[in-house]
Computed example of a mutant assay.
Amino acid sequence: MASIAPWIRGRLDRIGITLSALCLLHCVVGLALVAGLGLGSTFLFHPDIHRWGLLLATIIAAVAIGVGAVRHRRAKPFVVAMTGLSFMGGALAVGHGFEEALLTVIGVTLVAAGHILNLRRA
């Protein structure tokens, strides 16, 4: 698995960073729309969006950061990203609201940081 083309891993890291940014935007804009205007809570905060997002983030991080950790033998990107995924998983366990948003924002920030660290090691 470590022989996966470096450009594929780099592309997956960039996709992971983009998805983390989109997730962050989803949380912030979603909270603003629901709290400020009372719009979109049924769609924006549907649990399936968060479950699928966590699944996608886990797959991309496992491939990109996992392969990167094997290639460059540095655990830091992997540990940072997995900590972020743990926060994202924790966000699924709490009710909708501030706590969920806070855990998700921390999680996606750490996952993006793991991808950035992985790109720098390439």
Score class of each variant (00 low, 15 high):
Val67Trp: 03
Gly68Gln: 10
Leu119Gln: 12
Thr83Met: 04
Leu102Pro: 03
Ile8Cys: 01
Arg74Glu: 10
Leu12Lys: 00
Ala69Asp: 00
Cys27His: 14
Val105Phe: 01
Gly114Cys: 11
Ala122Trp: 09
Leu110Ile: 14
Arg9Met: 14
Ala2Val: 15
Ala122Phe: 06
Gly95Lys: 09
Ser3Lys: 02
Leu24Glu: 01
Pro6Trp: 02
Gly89Cys: 10
His50Cys: 10
Ala5Phe: 08
Thr104Glu: 03
Ala91Pro: 13
Ile17Gln: 00
Arg73Pro: 09
Val63Ala: 05
Gly97Cys: 12
Ala91His: 05
Val111Cys: 05
Gly53Thr: 04
Ile17Val: 06
Ile8Arg: 02
Val34Glu: 01
Val70Pro: 10
Arg51Pro: 07
Leu119Lys: 12
Leu56Trp: 13
Val111Met: 03
Ala113Gln: 05
Ser20Val: 03
Ala81Gly: 14
Met82Val: 14
Ala21Val: 15
Arg71Tyr: 02
Val28His: 08
Ala35Phe: 12
Met82Pro: 09
Cys23Ser: 11
Leu37Met: 14
Leu37Cys: 09
Gly89Asn: 08
Ile4Val: 14
Arg74Cys: 13
Ala35Pro: 03
Phe98Tyr: 15
Ser41Asn: 00
Gly30Tyr: 03
Ala75Pro: 13
Leu33Lys: 05
Leu85Lys: 03
Gly53His: 11
Arg71Asp: 02
Gly66His: 02
His72Phe: 11
Arg71Thr: 07
Leu56Ala: 15
Gly114Pro: 07
Phe87Ala: 15
Phe43Val: 10
Thr109His: 02
Ser20Gln: 02
Asp13Leu: 06
Ala93Asn: 02
His50Val: 11
Trp7Glu: 15
Val108Tyr: 01
Ile106Glu: 11
Thr18Ile: 11
Ala61Phe: 00
Arg120Tyr: 13
Cys23Asp: 11
Leu25Met: 13
Leu25Ser: 04
His50Thr: 13
Arg121Trp: 09
Arg120Ala: 14
Ala81Leu: 12
Gly10Pro: 05
Ser86Thr: 06
Phe43Asp: 05
Gly107Ile: 08
Ser41Arg: 01
Gly16Ala: 10
His72Gln: 06
Leu119Met: 15
Leu39Glu: 08
His115Phe: 03
Val80Pro: 06
Leu102Ser: 05
Phe98Leu: 14
Pro47Asp: 11
Leu117Arg: 13
Trp7Leu: 15
Leu102Gln: 04
Trp7Gly: 14
Glu100Gln: 11
